[in-house]
Amino acid sequence: MPTMTFTIEDLNNLHLDVLREIGNIGSGNAASALAKMINKRIDMDVPIVQILAFEDVAAILGGEEMVVAGIYFEVEGDITGNIMFLLDIASSKILTSILMGREDGSEELDEMDRSALQEVGNILSGSYISSLSALTGLKIKLSVPSLCIDMAGAILSVPAIQFSQTSDKIVLIETLLKEGSNQVKGNFFLIPDSKSFDKLLQSLGVYS
């Protein structure tokens, strides 16, 4: 086996397929966890998995100044790093309205909503992580969530800085969840440390 370090630029289609599968199962788990929580049917589109340059991430979210909710976790265990669950503000409001049983999704988010959002981020992220854990056999633990609602650029600077030490690209799993006519778009970012990235791919059996 070559001793070269694996970087995210070396990801090939096979890796992408595996990540897509993790995204698929993770999103499925996330959707059923959410459905259970609100006791309503949740549908899900096939998630889109992308490897992106950081400058393009903000554009996907509607620009650097777009207000978004980011829920950030530290990952510990066999692999270390961070994950971030990102929702645009419209999706955040819809999600909290569903959770709080409100009709209207236009209200400003209060403390209770923020806490609910943090919790739902926790559950959804946990779903991705358990699918990752199940597929790789790696033990992965999440820290408590930390929520920040601010400009997309500012929130993304945190994973961007972390990633910039190894690469300028990230893995994004974009999931569309639907409850009735409500659509919630969740963006799940996987940010393993460079060493963990090797380990992750090795565990997936796709290290080439």
């Binding site: 903000a58 601010d150 400009m151 650029g153 500012a154 993304l156 600077s157």
Partner: peptide, 14 residues
């Protein structure tokens, strides 16, 4: 140089 403006959007930890 004058009269142009420089901008950076969404500065966080940077």
């Amino acid at each position: 140089e004058e009269p142009h403006i420089l901008t950076t959007l969404g500065l966080g930890s940077c």
